[in-house]
Amino acid sequence: MLRTARKPGDASYVFKAEPAQVVVKECAGGAWKARTEAVTTWSAGGKSGIAFGGARYEVKSLPASAPACKGNSPCMRLATVPDGKTDATRTIYLAH
């Protein structure tokens, strides 16, 4: 199970291997609202990763020295594959 660091404006993602799913908690109306999404794998154009909530993410393992990891190891980054220039890349950092 991996969980992201929590701060105002962030969402919390709790991944489970079996069954492959993620519980996404987002702040809405002053309260945390949770939803569960199924996690699938994808592969296209020589790239691969996981997909959930209608978005495809590339997965990269980052060194603990990376600023975003704050010394945590293992540390992983999920980055969305943008669909067009104006589609901002969403990045999720995961750490134990």
Partner: peptide
């Protein structure tokens, strides 16, 4: 080219953050 531009822009950002 558009796809490659997006990927390079993202990679430059990741490199700048010290992740790649």
């Amino acid at each position: 080219v558009e796809t490659a531009m997006i990927q390079f822009k993202d990679m430059a950002r990741f490199y700048r953050r010290g992740e790649n």
